[in-house]
Write a protein that binds this DNA or RNA. Structure first.
Lengths: 112, 112
DNA sequence: GCTTAGTACTTGGCCATACATAGTACTTTT
DNA sequence: AAAAGTACTATGTATGGCCAAGTACTAAGC
């Protein structure tokens, strides 16, 4: 058990929320998302993002269309489905509550 | 894939941070922690908390002493070790950064 | 004294996800 | 035709939260 590992664990689930949010703002493809996630220091690698997108698509939260690219192979541009929007709403609520709960606990100082 | 599952995933790692924080405030035993975590709506069950405490103890972050109880079996009262305090500091930083990163992403609104 | 209820802690198995790594397929450049 | 770059796929590992059943001790009821 080390700190790095806990940091990895902390990202679990939150990443899904962030990805849904990014897609909710307009059509994007994987590399766009990687750039934004990296910029926000929500460090993610290809091998994490692509399987996540596939999971979300299979769950019916996303859909995509192929778009030809001028510099390389075609890209999958993702958009949220209605179901995806609903899930995003729920996750937003969950995340807000989680932050609130954590704050409730970590804002207390020692009583001894 | 369902929302509940993601909610469970979101808790990963964060729970560890919360537990360390609770213990950092003074000696407590498991039921105390469960009460506080439940009060903060950070829903946790016995089967999650006890193994977590054992992991943290084996990692050298916690130590405990048995204390006789007037109403039931003896209790393990936990305290943080020096190592535990250091880890807590790091996790605090990690958590703050994660909240910040998530905010960076989720505060943007759609550009389309 | 024996059973019942309550409290505190333990254990084993399951599942989902983040990650590492390697690989496929297509396009453009040289 | 070969090399480099881009976009996506596939497989295997490790970890932590959860469920469910179980152990052990104390106190109360009959």
């Amino acid at each position: 058990m080390n700190v790095e590992n806990t940091q990895v664990q902390m990202r679990k689930g939150i990443l899904e929320y962030c990805v849904l949010h990014i897609i909710s703002r307009g059509e994007v493809y994987a590399s766009d998302m990687l750039d934004e996630l990296t910029a926000a220091k929500m460090i993610v690698v290809e091998g994490t993002l692509y399987p996540l997108l596939t999971r979300l698509k299979n769950a019916g939260l996303l859909e995509y269309k192929w778009v030809e690219s001028k510099s390389g192979p075609p890209r999958k541009y993702y958009t949220l489905t209605d179901k995806g929007s609903k899930v995003l709403e729920q996750l937003t609520k969950t995340w807000d509550e989680l932050v609130h709960s954590t704050q409730m606990i970590t804002s207390k100082s020692r009583t001894v």
